[in-house]
Structure formats: structure tokens, C-alpha cells
């Protein structure tokens, strides 16, 4: 899951461009700057690599791993510089 701080997004769309699994798209709503902030696609392969967080120049994106899916291996919160939180 990603949470976007919509007021901080300036609409550079670098997160959409640089997502390695192409999981992001522009949303339908317009924020107060008049740009469309990113959102996750309905069907996506997001593996919480946190590249969108790192590449966002405005600190607008937060990646939170989902803990609901029991059958799938739980995606863990990784540090961008290596290492998994156990």
C-alpha cells in the first residue's frame, strides 16, 4: 500500500516513470496545485521496494507493507540501503 501526501505532490510523475514493476498511475482527483498525484493501480505487483519513496523529491510517498494476505509471503519493510526488519 502507498500513502500519498497529496498537498506535497508537485506532479513530476517520476515515481510512475521509475517504478520497476509499473505499479503506479495518475489518480482521477486533482490536488490544490492542479496536478494529479500518483496512486497504486487496481492490479499491481508492488513488492515494497521503496524506490518511489526515495525518488520523490517532495517526500510525498510512504510505502506501508500490507499484512492481510496470509497465503502470500508477507512483504516486509525493507531499508532502502539493504536489510529487512524482522
Amino acid at each position: 500500500m502507498i500513502v500519498v501526501n497529496e498537498d506535497w505532490c508537485k506532479g513530476c510523475n517520476l515515481c510512475i516513470e521509475r517504478c520497476p514493476v509499473n505499479a503506479l498511475e495518475e489518480s482521477d482527483t486533482i490536488n490544490r496545485r492542479g496536478v494529479r498525484p500518483p496512486r497504486l493501480k487496481e492490479v499491481n505487483e508492488c513488492n515494497c521496494c521503496r524506490l518511489c519513496e526515495l525518488v520523490c523529491p517532495d517526500f510525498a510517498i510512504t510505502v506501508i507493507p500490507e499484512e492481510k494476505k496470509k497465503d502470500v509471503k508477507k512483504p516486509l519493510l525493507r531499508s532502502p540501503v539493504g536489510g529487512i526488519n524482522r
Partner: peptide
């Protein structure tokens, strides 16, 4: 926040890398 930087500016990203280095 938000910053005064233009759309697509690299300064914010440098700040983010610095934070991660400090966090480490």
C-alpha cells in the same frame, strides 16, 4: 513544507539520501 523547489528539482532527493544516511 512543501518546498519552494521547482517541479522535478533534485535538491529534495539529496535531502532524502542525507536523512537515510543519518538514520543508518
Amino acid at each position: 513544507w512543501p518546498t519552494i523547489f521547482c517541479n522535478g528539482c533534485g535538491n529534495g532527493v539529496v535531502l532524502e539520501y542525507t536523512f537515510w544516511a543519518l538514520e543508518e
